[in-house]
Amino acid sequence: MGNLLGKEKPLKEVLRENKRTINRAVRELDREKTGLEREEKRLIIEIKQAAKQQQMGTVKILAKDLVRTRQHVTKFIEMRSHLQGCGLKLQTVKSHHAMAEAMKTTAKAMCKMNKAIDVPAINKMMAAFEKENAKTEIMQEIMGDTLDDALADESTEEAEEQVVNQVLDEIGISFGEEMPEALVGAPAVEEKTGPGKVAVEAEVADTALIELEARLNNLKR
């Protein structure tokens, strides 16, 4: 009815009908081939019987029929192979059509999704995230330094100095054993201690704190 009204059948329906036709033809060929194989067996039996009865004329005629029957069986096998090849071609076309339809649907969905996404809003959100993340890192750094200073213990500092002095003494002994003249002639290095050393350390700490506060102020702008 669709063709009578001038409306073309969809490709899926056309492929289904062609595949059905090919399968029907293959079944018919199989039936014909089965019949010819039965005929071949019957001819072989008759040839044997005629040969036993010394009927050589009949044997020749039956042998000719047997050869023709076998030739037809071979042709049916070839035709069946060709039909199966056509069926595989149709199946390939059907698969390509399904893949094309899937790609078409996917492209439409991706287009709608891209239209729904607000790219400037995402960029703004990412910039805000980077800014807040930088603030968090700076705050963590400040809090870590503050906690380190608050939890610093004099006994810990003394233990650290003791370990350092021990290592330096061991190195000095080694140098003294290997190069005593160099140690004798080397000038002594004065270590700054007392209020001057404390003032320098405080100045360095204040400078680091000022730099961190400046970074925070820049992020708040």
Rank of each mutant, 00 (worst) to 15 (best):
Q55W: 06
N18P: 05
N18S: 14
L43Y: 01
K41D: 02
Q55C: 07
L36W: 00
D30V: 06
E39H: 01
Q49K: 15
E28W: 07
A51N: 05
E46H: 04
K48I: 13
G57C: 07
V26F: 05
M56W: 12
D30L: 06
K19R: 12
Q49I: 14
E28H: 07
R24M: 13
Q55T: 02
R27C: 05
K48D: 12
R31C: 04
R38Q: 06
Q53H: 13
V26W: 02
V26N: 02
Q49H: 13
L43R: 00
E32K: 07
T58R: 06
N23Q: 14
E46M: 03
Q55S: 08
A50L: 06
I45M: 15
E40N: 07
R38P: 01
Q54K: 15
E32W: 06
T58V: 09
G57P: 04
Q55P: 02
N23M: 15
A25I: 11
R27H: 09
E37R: 05
R27K: 13
Q49A: 15
E37M: 09
R20W: 13
I45V: 15
L29C: 09
R20Q: 10
R24C: 12
L36M: 03
A25Q: 12
Q55K: 10
E28T: 05
T34F: 03
G57R: 12
I22E: 07
T34S: 08
Q53W: 10
E40Y: 04
R27L: 11
I44T: 10
K41C: 00
Q54W: 13
M56S: 08
E46A: 05
T34R: 07
A50R: 07
I44N: 10
L36Y: 00
T21E: 12
G57F: 11
A51Q: 08
E46F: 02
Q54N: 14
I47H: 03
G35M: 14
A50S: 09
N18R: 12
Q53A: 14
V59K: 02
L43P: 01
I22S: 08
Q54T: 10
A51T: 06
L29P: 03
L43I: 03
N23A: 14
A25D: 10
G57S: 12
R27D: 10
I22V: 14
N18V: 12
D30W: 02
G35I: 10
